[in-house]
């Protein structure tokens, strides 16, 4: 079922303020179109008035400061994959970018769009969670920053108002000495929607886990930061018993569903297995 094309409006914003003006008037943003155009083609796009933010310069660059890297919301996956600092300091993000869609969709798809599309299966979300990302939202009323882990409230529900635009994603640059792990489990090796996407980082002091962050996608209504499991691990030394306990903890913490792509039991078991695999790399 296709949409009735003449029903839809689209304007291309050249400047950030133009886009914000239009959002204030009830228009909805579209970036690379790799999610929204799929909905549109399937006759399922709920908005009729769209403003393209793809050409807004302020949204399309990656900036570096001493303390953080700021990625404009309309930065594409291709740009992320090729960025030398991201490759060096945030390799999990570059991996996730390389697993998102195809080359053609990475050329168009944007990190901001992926966040706002709010799919629990988004490959970049677990990475942003373990990197402690912050989001900067902007509207005509001003800007605000919120931790990404507080952003998703429920299935496709977010802490963002209709007149607000996701401006940028900030990643704190304190990643040294961390061990990191990422794995996507999808139905095939490319062009795949994750059945489970798992990311984790940890810092060891001696044999003890000093700091650990674990997140997973496709296992809950939102991309899930696994706080309960982290607390089981924090301060402990890796041992077979600890690995078993943590695996049980994450199996209890995730709330996957059965759908046309996979089953609840599989997603739960795989998440636990990936956690084990990660913890074994720390031992």
């Amino acid at each position: 079922m296709r949409s009735f094309v003449p029903d839809y409006e689209l304007v291309v914003a050249a400047r950030l303020n133009d886009a914000l003006d239009m959002l204030a008037e009830g228009w909805r943003p579209i970036a690379g179109g790799t999610d929204l155009m799929v909905l549109f083609n399937a006759g399922k796009l709920p908005y009729r008035k769209l403003v393209s933010i793809r050409r807004v310069k302020e949204l399309s660059s990656i900036e570096e400061s001493e303390t953080e890297i700021s990625i404009g919301a309309a930065v594409t996956y291709t740009h992320i994959r090729q960025h030398p600092v991201l490759r060096q300091e945030f390799p999990l993000l570059c991996s996730a970018a390389s697993w998102t869609g195809s080359i053609a969709n990475q050329n168009r798809g944007t990190l901001g769009g992926n966040i706002i599309n709010a799919s629990p299966a988004a490959d970049s979300s677990p990475v942003l969670l373990v990197y402690d990302a912050e989001l900067e939202l902007i509207s005509l009323r001003g800007t605000r920053r919120i931790p990404y882990c507080d952003f998703h409230l429920g299935y496709k529900k977010m802490q963002i108002r209709d007149d607000e635009l996701l401006r940028s994603i900030h990643l704190p640059r304190k990643t040294e000495n961390r061990r990191s792990y990422i794995r996507k489990v999808g139905p095939r090796q490319a062009q795949a929607i994750s059945k489970v996407c798992f990311a984790a980082t940890a810092r060891l002091r001696g044999s003890a886990i000093d700091e650990v962050r674990i997140a997973a996608g496709s296992v809950a209504p939102v991309p899930l930061r696994c706080h309960a499991t982290e607390s089981v691990l924090r301060g402990q030394s890796i041992s077979p018993d600890l690995i078993e306990t943590a695996a049980n903890a994450i199996a209890a913490e995730v709330q996957p569903i059965t759908d046309i792509r996979s089953t609840r039991d599989y997603r739960r078991a795989v998440t636990a297995n990936l956690l084990k695999q990660f913890l074994q790399t720390l031992a």
């Binding site: 689209l10 291309v12 179109g33 790799t34 050329n107």
Partner: peptide
């Protein structure tokens, strides 16, 4: 797929005005 400003894109996902 076509090249749009030398980048590969799926033209079914590109609104023409964009």
């Amino acid at each position: 797929a076509v090249l749009l400003n030398d980048e590969l894109v799926n033209s079914c996902l590109v609104p023409v005005r964009d």
